[in-house]
């Protein structure tokens, strides 16, 4: 019945008694909204083309070697992106490693029946509130509160685990590890919210089946819900990864902005967005601007790819459920 009522061009068109003005108004309105949609849809293309155009001097000069060259010297016009690519990937990986268990834990207690419902919604709300805090304020807090508070922890890692290459330098505050921790705080809401949605989309019959066979609440969560939700959790993780890769302000304020590659996570580093934030304002040489544009283009394409993977993973799961 509803199928038949679906408005189509024919059953919504004005009745013949209406004046030609209204007819024009309709097609004009349609045309304007079509143009708006076209303009909106063209922005991503526009973005790629313009950034590519301004990146061309650098692409022509450095080519793909840009990706594995380590030097970044503004005075000599030598640009290589490796330290920034490395820093972006490492800080995001630390963030994902820390945030994934926490986010999934939040999703479990806010969707499964381990807590009364009256507590679940406020907890989910509070966790999602973190995502509403502007990232520059997270950075401000990271710089003045979190880094001093975690100073003993960094010292502890250095003094007890310096035989590990990832902790073998003396920490002095800003570091790759701190950037990872701050990023983790910022992506927990993403992982929690999406995993929660995925858990809620999983059929209750599956859980009831487990209970009928004598499973406890936790057994049903671990052996039924989590395996069923695994691709959705991967999707949430890649969405969070996309956010982490592009996150700028908070990272800039705690990573230390040093262009070195070090195995030690206690050493300061740098990331692509942090470099863009720090250098774009002062860049004037076309090659320097070009190198920064090249990095922006890379960042855009990588985030796009990661988000596309996330979309596919989440969609297949919520559709099947």
């Amino acid at each position: 019945m509803t199928e038949a009522l679906e408005p189509t061009q024919s059953n919504l068109s004005p009745v013949p008694t209406e004046s030609w003005i209204s007819q024009f108004g309709d097609s004009g309105f349609r045309g304007i909204s079509f143009l708006a949609a076209l303009l909106t849809a063209s922005i991503p293309f526009w973005m790629c083309v313009l950034i590519f155009k301004d990146a061309r001097p650098a692409i022509a000069k450095f080519g793909l070697a840009f990706l594995w060259t380590q030097e970044w010297n503004i005075d000599q016009n030598l640009f290589g992106a490796l330290p920034y690519i490395y820093g972006t990937l490492v800080s995001s990986a630390i963030a994902l490693l820390l945030a994934l268990p926490i986010g999934v834990a939040v999703a479990i207690i806010t969707s499964e029946k381990v807590l009364p419902e009256g507590l679940q919604t406020p907890i989910a709300f509070l966790v999602e509130l973190i995502a509403a805090i502007p990232s520059v304020i997270v950075g401000l807090w990271g710089r003045f509160i979190l880094i001093p508070a975690l100073e003993p922890f960094q010292q502890f890692l250095y003094s007890h685990f310096k035989w590990l290459p990832i902790f073998n330098t003396q920490p002095f505050g800003p570091s790759m590890l701190m950037a990872g921790v701050v990023l983790a705080i910022m992506i927990v809401p993403t992982i929690a919210a999406i995993s929660r949605e995925v858990f809620m989309a999983i059929s209750q019959d599956l859980r009831n089946g487990a209970f009928a066979l004598g499973a406890t609440q936790w057994e049903s969560i671990v052996f039924i819900t989590l395996p069923a939700a695994i691709s959705g959790i991967f999707g949430a993780a890649s969405l969070a990864l996309g956010r982490a890769l592009g996150e700028t302000m908070a990272v800039t304020m705690v990573i230390g902005n040093v262009n070195e590659i070090s195995t030690s996570l206690l050493n300061p580093g740098n990331s692509i967005p942090a470099l863009l934030a720090n250098q774009f304002g002062e860049a004037s040489d076309p090659l320097h601007v070009g190198a920064l544009m090249y990095l922006a283009l890379l960042l855009f394409l990588v985030t796009l790819a990661v988000n596309a993977i996330a979309a596919v993973l989440v969609r297949t799961l919520t559709r099947n459920a």
Binding site: T40, A41, I43, P44, F45, M47, I51, G242, L245, G246, E247, T248, P273, L276, A277, F280, L292, M293, A296, L299, F300, T303, L304, N307, A311
Partner: peptide, 15 residues
């Protein structure tokens, strides 16, 4: 495309 735009890092929008 709108979803793609929503996923673009804000620094890239600045660029």
């Amino acid at each position: 495309l709108v979803t793609i735009l929503s996923a673009a890092p804000s620094i890239v929008v600045g660029v």
